[in-house]
Design a protein around this nucleic acid. Sequence first.
DNA 1: CTGAAAGCGCTTACAG
DNA 2: CTGAAAGCGCTTACAG
Lengths: 368, 368
Amino acid sequence: MNRRSDSATGDDTSTSPLAASPAGPAGSTGPAGSSRPTSRDVAERAGVSQATVSLVLRDRWRGRVSPARAEEVREAALELGYRPNLAARRLRSGGTGTVLLVVPALTNEFFARVHAGAAAVAAERGMSVVLFPSPEGIGPAPDPFASAGATLDGVIASSMASHALRALRGGGLPLVMLDSDPEDSEAAATVNPDVPEGLRRVGRYLLEVGHRRIVHLAADIDTWTFRARGRALEAELAAAGRSLAGRARAVLDVREAAVVAEGLLSARPRPTAVVCDDDVLAAGACKAARRTGLRVPEDLSVTGVDDLALATAVEPELTTVRLPAEEMGGAGMRALLEVLAGGTPGTRVLPVRFVPRGSTGPVPTGAG
Amino acid sequence: MNRRSDSATGDDTSTSPLAASPAGPAGSTGPAGSSRPTSRDVAERAGVSQATVSLVLRDRWRGRVSPARAEEVREAALELGYRPNLAARRLRSGGTGTVLLVVPALTNEFFARVHAGAAAVAAERGMSVVLFPSPEGIGPAPDPFASAGATLDGVIASSMASHALRALRGGGLPLVMLDSDPEDSEAAATVNPDVPEGLRRVGRYLLEVGHRRIVHLAADIDTWTFRARGRALEAELAAAGRSLAGRARAVLDVREAAVVAEGLLSARPRPTAVVCDDDVLAAGACKAARRTGLRVPEDLSVTGVDDLALATAVEPELTTVRLPAEEMGGAGMRALLEVLAGGTPGTRVLPVRFVPRGSTGPVPTGAG
DNA sequence: CTGAAAGCGCTTACAG
DNA sequence: CTGAAAGCGCTTACAG
């Protein structure tokens, strides 16, 4: 958790217009002690025009500037520690440099990871991403675009219901969907985790270790991602000539999930495994088991989806399906950038990982 | 988790330069179908100059523009749905509109909340915040400023060791520290949670319900915030004529914490309470208790700090001290903005909240 | 109390 | 293959 203190020598940092900066390296045009170098300074030092600098540094010089000159420009830029002024670039190019990321719940670790992935890719390209604040329980959703404050280049939306997506499309902005129905063709691109494969894998595993009375604790949320999870689980069981022994729905809250799970566990004959749509639900199922006097995994196997921090904090640790949240955010941002550049990225599916841990085991003896 | 679909009618959104926009409201200067309105359009409609528009909209008009005119300008801006172009404003004003938030670990829920709070305040003021990617275990820390990509207006750093802060100061940028030593006067401002009070409260509570053999599972991290926690706990016990029955240190990882906690629990006479520096450590302590055959809270009380999502996911739920992470991020951003405006916000201490839950109880009978 | 003008640092046609 | 010029939308002295 500590940071190293080396290397932050401030070569770049001292050039902030707000910082008292030492006189810049050679080549400055302005008065003594002037702040950071501009493309003009680079041009001067390389003995070319500003236009050439721009061309070279944006990598659009091929066939327009000689390789030797290009190299000289790059060298001059490096020597001066030149960094393009983003505000100027945006002003000139018309973009806002801002992308809106719309997620159902900011407080959720999954979406925090999606955001981190998107922001990292954005930062590389000099863009920034604004999160749309969650409207959870605080009345009707405000206009996401108004709330963004800044005007936008595009929108990335994760795990939305289709009616919400329809509202988003209303903006007329380039839209990339994450973890959403690929058929819902409002979007220019879709990036999805392979949740169906994840749930099939869970079903296969439970069948293999002997479970026959498997129930589904589903998320009480009408979105593609959760519908897909339920369908995939059913399909896997069906392929083995089996079917679900029960299903209940709960919102993504540990306590509520525990209450709902208790109901599921009161069925006779008692289920031997609970497949949950999400780790939070799985944590609730574990609580319910404990209250009911069932041991996990000896009497009951429990699985989740996501691999949140709490998955390894609970005891026993949760068997789960890890979703590539950061990768989704990153891929979504890349797709949006591609759309903005005129491309058509289409649909991408990212692999998920089955992570067996302590909350699952072979079917209890005498059961099944 | 669902979003409502009302209200996103796109009045603002359709004005993106990238979107095919309907012809704007009256007053546009440019060719037909031109994009979003500029301050010039507002000026024209209000019958004033661009300068007046700028003055009024930035709220610097008092004593320079008549109230009646100011009102007309505001009206015109509203009618046109005018929003200032941030890129232009920044270019002209010299700021970059970007603040760097340096945190020890991005993956941590606490810092995610700090970031959310800072980003929300930033968005209100048309600023954006860039996270410094965690260098955890991936070799020497890269230069945080170089990695930021954009140049910066200022830096907010949370929970840093002082040597790391020294590196940050090297940038010569306005610096606000969060959750850090207020004596470490590198920073223009400090915003801290009242962790000492939180730990004192925990100590007081445990003493009240009869615990006498209290041990401390400390974070193995040399920062102000964790030193302050340990000292405050000791002070509270000392005030009651008691002292710690033991202490061990662990990194913030559930499994490692469990191993270390097992050692702590092997002491004889056995401790009746483990005060942990953090919820992750507390989750580890609960695991250790379980492995050792101790019941929580019947045989052992466990407390944490933070109130992370996992605090209510584990069974029993963790008694903890809730840290106002979002508020810290928000207050930090406000302080930085104040510094940038020439103010001197100084040190601010935010209250914390003791949250008693199932992981603590009266001292076991026959013990103490 | 108000307006005309300059210029922030880029990129992009355009002319050579 | 290269350069001179215009202009993105603001804000800020400056002149009235």
